[in-house]
Design a protein around this nucleic acid. Structure first.
Lengths: 221, 221, 221, 221
DNA sequence: GATGAATGAGATTTCATTCAT
DNA sequence: AATGAATGAAATCTCATTCAT
């Protein structure tokens, strides 16, 4: 099977898996159901993805790819604007991405929890073989930092064009922004279908976050 | 068995479970191993905790209790200080709590992911029976908002004593701070044993976060 | 579980397996069906017998045990008779055993085909792991020669009491008799439900064989 | 593809199958390996032989053909000798055949086990469709009795020329001889690479068998 | 006719959870 | 309340066999 066709089949499977994982969660998802949804048999499914975890990693990889693509798009859209707009655009784009692609954002967040100790800590065994042997795991490792780097580059651009006055290290600003978003996503995730937490409209928090980011970048807080 | 004895056994089991969950993660943890670690058999384990998830919920409850206790302690320690000091103390206390009790912070964060849709969304089934029927799940629901409320109260106190000038809603400020911390924790969690991410010292981010919080509260950004 | 109870359960499973193997043959037998027949689940079945082949070996072992028991019984029944009667009794008993216990005789014959090269020939791999790792395989190796030895001893007794005049080595006579029976069994097996082969009544062959054996032993051919 | 070419391909496949079956046994042989050995793909293999069992039957058929050819050759070589020499020559030829063509003798012996109940016994299903539908199965049925008949004819010739005095039915003598050989073959098969069983040299048994046959035929025992 | 991909059936394993004593 | 055995659900794998191109 030529690469194209195989890729198409993989994509089809991944889509089926996405819908199943999204619907019932990783733990409750059955390979059988994923296969059925993809219109194939379990064995065929296994011939494409060697384990459930491997399949999850494939989705994670896809999520990273998509996120990066979104980032590039935003950068491109802002190439004639000041750097600060690009940087903030990325922040907002990241939030939109998470809000609109729950499973994707979950995989990305889980991924970062997962790789704790991937540097070789005592609890290496926390990453099961199914994951660490996954080719997607390797592929993700190659691109996992790209989102941060792209953000940092936009901040640099903003510093150069004067739109960003903060004297903090660009990566520091990037990570601070990233963590703020991640926390916000966790927050909205935890609120479920509700749009408020303790009567506080989540939109308010989002707006506040954005304001904060702009101020931090522009005025250097 | 009198309540005391039962409580002691439960504590013993929970400690065993903590060490196992901490070591290999929830998914890879085996009830058998937990039982062995606790010096009992699986069936006895089940007589105390009706399911693996229930056991996890028990730990989560313990984590919430501990966190709340920490918050009360901080509030008490700051009762003669200005409100802003209490509020910031709580933020820092939360971070310390997470950094020093990885499993606890993980359970708390997971808990909030878990209850998404508990309000009755389309994927109600995502919360398995094992969880929703857990008595600990119920108990947690009674206290889950306490950390946020305590923080909010300290902010109110700061507003009253003039140490906090921000005109934003106290709960908004609370949630913003909370999300910033959660994001930061996710960040350090993902860095594993390393103390840096892309050459950025995590301590820098933490310091930056604290500065930011203080500025936001004091000057009202 | 005390040894008794476990043994009883094993026996129960073995009986179920016998009936399934007898009905559909080893290849077509499903572990699921055997489990159902034994009134247990597949997993329980596997907790007793680690593989289908292991189960088959268990039956083979039982067959050997049974055959040996039959031989002992015959020897005992003939202890006041001349040796030649014991020797011939064993021959006839062996034939009866095969005719009345098809599965048992099949396992014994298959076993001997199986162990070809167990001495370490080039095709060691012909004995799959499932078999060679079976404890029953080991146990059989300890008793596989007993039927031959018992026969040989009866022949020796016959030589001593003068009822057997043959000057051939007792083991040679034993093996010759054994091979004649095995061949005869193969023959009747191949005739299926029919009682003749090419119009020849199988009983005739059996009678002929017995006569032959008696002559060979008595007169020393 | 003309018949010749097809035949050549079939032969090539059969040879590959023989080597694989010989090496690992029917149960452990993989169609994939046979195809690879034959330098073709699985599907092509299936286009020649519709099932694994069919392939085995093809080899069995070849074995029968070969055996019959050997018998004819022996008969021809003995046409100027007395009938008893032809009959005994066949016996010895059969033994040589088995000793020198292990797989062939195995297939022939297995075949006879296989067809048990082909007459329509209760376990008809024991012969799988793969076998009973095999064209080779049909072909074998046409020639399976030829070896016995040829032997019987030689015995008849011996009776006519006076070299065989036994008054037993020729087919009875044939079947008795056949079963003795089959048993002997089972015996040597079970001894694997060893040339002895319980210290008894297998050659001794063979010699004894032949003596016995000669005596039985000549003197009528 | 040949090929790579897919299917279907069943073996085997791993665990959370439950039963019987 | 404690224990060893058993259950049930699903993951994973192996192969003979079939399909689509």
């Amino acid at each position: 099977m030529d690469r194209q066709r195989r890729k198409a089949k993989e994509d089809n499977i991944i889509k089926a898996a996405e819908s199943v994982f999204e619907a019932v969660g990783f733990g409750n998802a059955k390979m059988e159901d994923i296969a059925t949804k993809a219109g194939i048999t379990k064995v065929t499914l296994y011939s494409y993805f060697q384990s459930k975890e491997n399949l999850y990693m494939a989705i994670t990889y896809k999520a990273f790819q998509y996120l990066i693509e979104v980032f590039y798009q935003i950068i491109d859209n802002n190439k004639s604007n000041l750097g600060i707009e690009g940087a903030i655009g990325i922040q907002e784009g990241f939030i939109d991405f998470c809000e609109n692609n729950f499973l994707f954002s979950e995989t990305i967040l889980n991924y970062f929890s997962l790789i704790r100790s991937s540097a070789g800590g005592k609890d290496r065994n926390k990453i099961s073989l199914g994951i660490s042997e996954s080719i997607y795991f390797t592929k993700i490792q190659d691109i996992q930092n790209l989102p941060l780097k792209l953000t940092s580059q936009e901040i640099d651009r903003g510093k150069n064009d004067g739109s960003i006055q903060s004297e903090k290290d660009s990566m520091l600003l990037t990570l601070q922004g990233w963590s703020m978003i991640v926390g916000y996503i966790k927050l909205i995730t935890s609120s479920g279908v509700s749009t408020t937490i303790l009567n506080m409209d989540l939109k308010e928090i989002k707006k506040f976050n954005t304001e904060l980011t702009r101020t931090v970048l522009a005025q250097g807080l």
